[in-house]
Structure formats: C-alpha cells, structure tokens
Amino acid sequence: MDVIYPLAVPKGRRLCCEVCEAPAERVCGACTVTYYCGVVHQRADWRSIHEKICQLLIPLRTSRPFYNSEEERQHGLQQLQRRQKHLIEFCYTVAQKYLFEGKYEAAVPAALHSLRFRMNVHGLSSVELVPAYLLLAEASLGLGRVVQAEEYLSQAQWTVLKSTECSYATQSLLHRNLGLVCMAKGNCEEARDHLANDIYFASCAFGTEHIRTSGGYFHLANIFHGLQKLDLADTLYTKVSEIWSKYLNDRCEALSQARIQQLDLLGKRFETDTGLDEAQEAEAIQILTSILTIREATSDRAPQKTIFVLKILAMLYYLMMDSSKAQEYALRAFDLAKEQKLSVREQNSIQDVLNLISAEEAHPITQPPGSSRWGLVKGS
C-alpha cells in the first residue's frame, strides 16, 4: 500500500477523506484518485474495500476522454454508469458480509462506497440510497453508536416517505433495522412491531417460507428468548431451521443429480453450490450457529433439534465446499443421533450427508488457475 502526499490542489477544489470527509492530506499511491485525512483511515479503507476496487476507481475519477461524436459520448456514459452500478452491488455485498461476521468497523468504508456510488447514479433523494443507509445504521449499532444509527435510519425513513416506488424488500430491511435499534434500546414492544412488519414485507416480496424472510423470524425469536417466552422463541427458531433445511436440501439434491451428469445446473461448475453470495452465506452461518448454541444449551430436553441444526450446518458447509467443517458438523450430528438412539431412518439421513461429503473429498472441484471469487482486479 504505497502512499504519496498530494503536491498541489487545483484552485477551488477541496480534497476530502474517503472515510470521514475531513480535509485530505494523503492519497493512495496505487490509484492516485482516492484521498484520506491520515494513515488510520487510509489503512481502514484499504483493508475494508479499497484493496478490492482500487484500480476500478481510476476511470471513474479521472477526466473523461474527448469524444468525436454524440454516439461515442453516450456509449462512454453508459459504460461509466455500468461500472458504478457494478461497484454499488459489490461494495454492498462486501459490507453485508462484514456485518454478518461481526466486523462492524470494516463494514463502514464499504457501505460508504456503496452509498456514494448510489448517489452518483440515482441522485441524492432516490430510494436506491436506503439499503446503504441501513448498512451504515447496522454497522453503527454494532459499534455501540446508537445515536448515529438512528440518524442513518432517519435518513432512510425520510427517503422512503418521499418515495412513491419503494419495494417490499427495501421496506422489509428498513423495519428490520428499526427493530434492531429498538432492541438495543430495550424497547421490546416497538421492536416486535417493526420485526412483524419486516416479516410481512419480506413475505410480500419473497414468500413466507423464503430464506430472505427467515431473518425476521430469527430476530423476533431472539426477542422472545430474551423475554423468557421460550415456547414462542422455540417455534420461531424451528421455523428458521426448517426454511434453511429445505433450501439447502433442495440444493444438495440438485447438485447430486447434476454430478451424475458431470454438470451443474447451467452446464458449468460453480465455485460454490449454495446459490448464495458471500454475504448470504455469512448470514446463514451467523443465524444457524446462533440457533445451534441455543439448542445445545437445552439439548437435554430436545436433542433432536440440536441434531437437526448440526445437519443443516453440515449441508451448508458442504455446499460451500468446506469439507472439513461439513464433516465436523455431520459427525457431531451422527454421534449425537447414535447416543440418543434415534431411529435408523434418521441416522441414515445423516449418513447420506456424510456420504456426500466423502464423495466431494474423493472428487474435489478445483478453480481455474488465477481465478478470483470476486472477479475483480485488485490494487497493489
């Protein structure tokens, strides 16, 4: 990560830090178009997102070339917009992944990039800005900055109120974050209302049994668990587990059929077979391991529920092509099933997962040399 200092600033131009918008004193030596107030924010941005998009920022932040015709100019503008839209989603996914992994500090620069690109493409009052505001609110909440989280949520709410075209998916995310803030402030009743709205809007967008809806059920279960309403919490944790079990089981079955034909569903091999992006995979791990912890604490009363979640995690890691973790969870499920003397059928279902993992280890899928999951050029 080379660093140089700006030697001169064009008259009338103010260079701002990429992270905090304070007056800048440093510039990234790799792209020379990204500025920082100091080394702390430069390192934070580099580790969060800048390393992954460094070179991609150059054509977006340098002077546009001279075009010989209006047609060339329109083509250049379209290319610029496509790059920005790509970076919107990429930065958003990276920030989401950090959030689900509990890396709140790292999520902030990536979320800020997504917000700025959204402003450039959609304008300052577009509802398209809301998902980025919500990421920043969640990161702030994770860092214990409740007031700042509320400020981002207020911006999101105001943008939604002014919009006539806000999707159900966006409204779901808004209510989820409002619910999380209420939980952090100890206002469980208001949190329940927001999470109920989250589930409603997610159900309208994706359906009641969709993995995108399961997050609302999970957070609502956490509220009931904290209030010692364990029966309600247990019902919702079971629902979340069943949603993920069905989704992953369907993926496993599709993969088994595809491997018989030596092809995946599109006639080529995926790097992973979950059908999820990295942020969704991180969310699945966070939700399911949290439920497992709760199940293990009460495994003496309902060991079958612990076994069920262990099996789901085994399928998830199998589809993520992490054979070691998949086998670890599957063996734990199998050993517990034998210890509890579950039916032969239930033990065989876990054995089927172990057989899939063994087949994967015998015939692993390898990536092409030099390939990257992100599919992006990285800065030096």
Rank of each mutant, 00 (worst) to 15 (best):
S371K: 00
I365E: 03
E339I: 05
N197H: 05
K246V: 14
C204V: 03
F334M: 08
C252A: 08
A22P: 07
E328M: 04
E278H: 10
L141F: 09
P59H: 06
V27D: 13
S256N: 09
G102R: 04
N177E: 10
L178I: 11
Y217A: 08
A337K: 01
R118T: 09
V344H: 09
R301K: 05
E165H: 15
C54L: 07
Y318A: 05
C28E: 01
S299F: 00
D335S: 12
S299G: 00
K162I: 14
E51F: 11
A297K: 09
V40G: 13
R43H: 12
N348E: 15
A362K: 01
I58Q: 06
K378A: 12
Y36C: 11
L129T: 07
E165V: 11
T293E: 14
K229D: 11
Q171S: 05
L265F: 08
D2S: 13
E21N: 07
S256R: 11
L77D: 06
D234S: 14
G207Q: 02
A196M: 05
Y329P: 15
R73D: 14
V3C: 12
G275E: 04
K268V: 06
E328D: 10
M321R: 12
R269H: 09
H86N: 08
E21Q: 08
H363I: 01
L227S: 15
I357R: 09
G215A: 14
E128F: 12
F270D: 01
N355I: 13
G29V: 09
L134P: 03
D335K: 10
R145T: 02
Q286L: 13
K338Y: 04
S172N: 03
A149W: 15
R13P: 08
Q81R: 12
L336K: 01
K311C: 08
Q280N: 02
A326P: 03
P65Q: 12
A326T: 04
S245Y: 12
C37D: 06
Q228S: 10
L342H: 02
L230P: 11
V19S: 06
A326S: 06
L115H: 03
R332E: 09
S380C: 02
N222L: 11
G275C: 01
Y237A: 15
G179K: 10
G144M: 14
R118W: 04
Q79H: 00
Q351S: 10
E21S: 05
P23I: 15
V3P: 06
A106Q: 03
V94G: 00
G102A: 07
F270T: 00
S324R: 00
G76Y: 02
A132G: 14
E18N: 14
R118E: 03
L115G: 01
G186W: 12
H41C: 08
L99R: 02
A8L: 13
Y247D: 00
E101R: 03
V94K: 03
G102D: 06
F66E: 00
E25T: 13
Y98V: 00
S154Y: 12
N68G: 14
Q79T: 07
I260T: 10
F117G: 07
V121F: 11
